[in-house]
Nucleic acid binder design. Structure first.
Length: 692
DNA sequence: ACCGCCGGGTGCC
DNA sequence: ACCGCCGGGTGCC
């Protein structure tokens, strides 16, 4: 159905540097509840047989996940229905597409804001509905079937990001006469100075606003020009937030604006404060019109909120992470300990420098950084911030005694000339290999032998090295996952939304269920993700011993959860369970075994999966896999029995094996995520495809 | 990453 | 290493 590796990679997301080895993680696994069952290999077939032979047990459709009881006919009919709906999925996609690009989307903020986040679980166990809130009147329901894990998870979080970008609703500044309109003074900023050629701007310079409809980045762009007629100097732009509302006013109601610079900019590219007012007289018709009033209210609101919000002091990326933490703290208090809550909350009260430095490094690959090479214009005192962050437990600094793993990673930060220099100090006789890894290896070996002072030399010569503390790393990682509901997205998702590289439809989200019921569910899930990551890494490195260990661990994990967790959960929520992750690992393990032609082992594993997930929608696929593996070991008779007599699953009985295979192939490619609606080449190509 | 750019690190064609 | 490639950091019209 899904390629195991790919879906696992998506599940894991950005790889974390795992401290410790497998045994640590293994020992951290929940205690084995029913060990005797796991070690016994021979008795699965009985289990399988006993569950499958009861003719009328509840089965889940592999397409939509609906639970149903019934004979072959009913199941076939349902399958056909579900498969026809494949077209509908496409339709949904293009609907979303249009929604983002319909011209009326310009007025989308005219709606009551409900920033409740989460998801609605209606239309059966796997459906998620997004309620478009662009205009209240024609609010249509977009029902997105979240059948496939990567799709559902991805979309939900995408929307989540976007919800946070929904404008806060204006309190409303009611203009009732033309005079009031003309007297109103808006204080705002010229931005985008970096892109303007005109550097000269003095206090009191007169300016006018001109629409820039051909702007590639933003169709609402408004240029700020010199008021000097014929001069045509472009000083910069009005911020995107404001021009979103201002430009329809200029275009549809022929308003014009002028103003002056109220103070000189601190930096050459910095925003320039200006004061603008509306020149044109407005008819009372216009002022009474709903569209006008709403646009104007938004303009006033944007200007006001820019003034009152402490935006000036905070960079966007700071706001984004703070927002993320606040959201997570609000919705998921039950998942954190008191200490963890206070640690996360303490971040919000850190100084600007500290917050900025932390985020900068948190987003970077690392894990170690050299303090002396870090430089960020927006951070005033990096040394001071580093010190404070390490005192508060966010950072860990290099010391004279660092663990071996850390030493290797620190050495990796250095460039080859620096490493050569160190090598000269430590051991002059060593041959000079040019490969970085060779030099590091030789340095590490001398450190283990005769030069325990290496870290001290390192610090003396190259200054302090910094890494994010384990506490901070794991807590922020958790917060991030809880916010995005996947492992792939990070703070850059905000940026993409900001730059409109990705556009999201407007929607309302209502939370009906918690993703994790309690802390221990979440912790087991995190453990499982760790195992998944090790699995992924070991497959990449072709380390079949570790792969085998991961499979073993996943099996142990599965057996612990088989009783309560697996069967009660709805399809969507089950994606956030350890058992789901473990099942993915095991399935990937099966592919690995198949690749190594170890079919007997593969079959054993598959049978175990089938015995644990007795009601899982993936059973059909697993069964097919099993029958193929049986064929590989030269037992076609048994494979035929498995496939056609439905020994394992009623879904198999629903059609001939060939038909099933075709179906799985057709289902095999779940629709990609929503196409990236940007103005990039990719997007243009996609548009062509759509129109063709 | 789903973009696009820039600049540093690195290697032995 | 005057080159060419790869991959990390970054963006905020």
């Amino acid at each position: 159905m899904l390629k195991g590796r790919e879906s696992l990679i998506r599940l894991i997301g950005k790889r974390r540097t795992l401290s410790g080895d497998l045994s640590v993680i293994l020992s951290a696994l929940p205690p084995l509840v029913r060990g005797e069952k796991v070690t016994a290999v021979g008795d699965e077939e009985e289990d399988v047989a006993s569950t499958s032979l009861s003719a009328s047990y509840l089965v889940h459709c592999p397409v939509c996940g609906t639970a149903m009881r019934g004979g072959d006919q009913a199941i076939n009919a349902h399958l056909d229905f579900c498969l026809v709906k494949g077209k509908k999925r496409k339709l949904t996609q293009s609907t979303l597409f249009q929604l983002k690009y319909s011209p009326k989307a310009k007025f989308e903020s005219n709606s009551p804001s409900n920033n409740t986040l989460g998801f609605v679980n209606q239309m059966g166990p796997t459906a998620v509905s997004f309620i478009k809130d662009s205009d209240c009147q024609k609010s249509e329901n977009l029902c997105v079937h979240a059948t496939y894990e990567d799709q559902s998870v991805g979309n939900l979080c995408d929307e989540k990001v976007d919800a946070l970008y929904q404008d806060k609703m204006p309190l409303g500044s009611n203009i009732t006469t033309s005079q009031e309109l003309n007297q109103l003074i808006l204080e705002t900023l010229i931005v985008g100075r970096r892109f303007s050629i005109e550097k000269e701007l003095r206090l009191g310079t007169s300016i006018i606003l001109v629409r820039d409809p051909n702007n590639i980045k933003d169709c609402n762009a408004i240029k700020v020009l010199s008021a000097d007629p014929g001069c045509g100097k472009v000083f910069g732009y009005i911020s995107r937030d404001l021009s979103k509302y201002l430009s329809p006013l200029i275009e549809k109601f022929s308003l014009s604006f002028e103003g002056c610079v109220t103070s000189a900019p601190e930096h050459i590219f910095g925003p320039v404060p200006i004061r603008i007012s509306c020149l044109s007289p407005a008819s009372s018709n216009m002022i009474d019109s709903e569209v006008f009033r709403s646009l104007w209210a938004n303009v006033v609101h944007v200007v006001e909120s820019a003034k009152t919000n402490p935006t000036s002091g905070k960079t966007k990326y700071q706001e984004n992470l703070c927002l993320l933490i606040k959201e997570v703290l609000q919705d998921n208090r039950h998942l954190f300990t008191v200490d963890e809550l206070s640690f996360l909350e303490s971040f919000l009260s850190l100084s600007n420098d500290c917050q900025r430095l932390f985020i900068r490094l948190y987003m970077r690959k690392g894990p170690w950084f050299r303090l002396s090479t870090m430089s960020y214009v927006e951070i005033l005192n990096i040394e001071e911030a580093t010190k404070e962050l390490s005192e508060r437990g966010y950072f860990r600094l290099s010391s004279a005694e660092v663990p071996l793993d850390d030493l290797k990673r620190i050495l990796n930060v250095l460039a080859i000339p620096d490493l050569r220099f160190l090598q000269n100090i430590v051991d002059k006789r060593k041959n000079l290999s040019s490969r970085k890894q060779d030099i590091i290896a030789s340095l590490v070996s001398s450190y283990e032998g005769r030069h325990p002072c290496l870290p001290a030399v390192l610090i003396k010569k190259y200054g302090v090295f910094v890494t994010i503390s384990e506490t901070a790393e794991s807590l922020f990682w958790r917060a991030q996952r809880l916010f995005f509901l996947n492992g792939e997205q990070d703070l850059s998702a905000f940026l993409f939304a900001d730059l409109q590289i990705i556009k999201y439809p407007a929607y309302n989200c209502i939370t009906t269920d918690k993703i994790f019921r309690n802390r221990s569910d979440m912790l087991s899930f995190e453990e499982a993700v760790k195992v998944a990551q090790i699995m992924d890494q070991s497959i990449e490195e072709n380390d079949s011993i570790t792969v085998a260990q991961c499979i073993k661990m996943s099996e142990l994990g599965l057996s612990c959860f088989s009783e309560h967790a697996i069967q009660s959960e709805t399809t969507f929520l089950s994606l956030f369970s350890a058992s789901w992750v473990y099942s993915k690992v095991v399935l990937l393990g099966i592919s690995f075994l198949e690749k190594e032609h170890r079919y007997i082992d593969a079959i054993t594993l598959l049978r175990r999966l089938l015995s644990v997930f007795t009601c899982d929608s993936r059973r059909g696929y697993w069964t097919l896999r099993l029958s193929i593996d049986l064929e590989h070991i030269g037992r076609p008779t048994e494979s035929l029995i498995v496939a056609e007599n439905g020994l394992l699953d009623p879904w198999i009985r629903a059609g001939s094996r060939l038909a099933l295979q075709r179906r799985i192939l057709r289902l095999g490619k779940p629709p990609r995520r929503w196409k990236i609606p940007s103005f990039s080449m990719t997007f243009k190509r996609k548009l062509n495809e759509v129109s063709c």
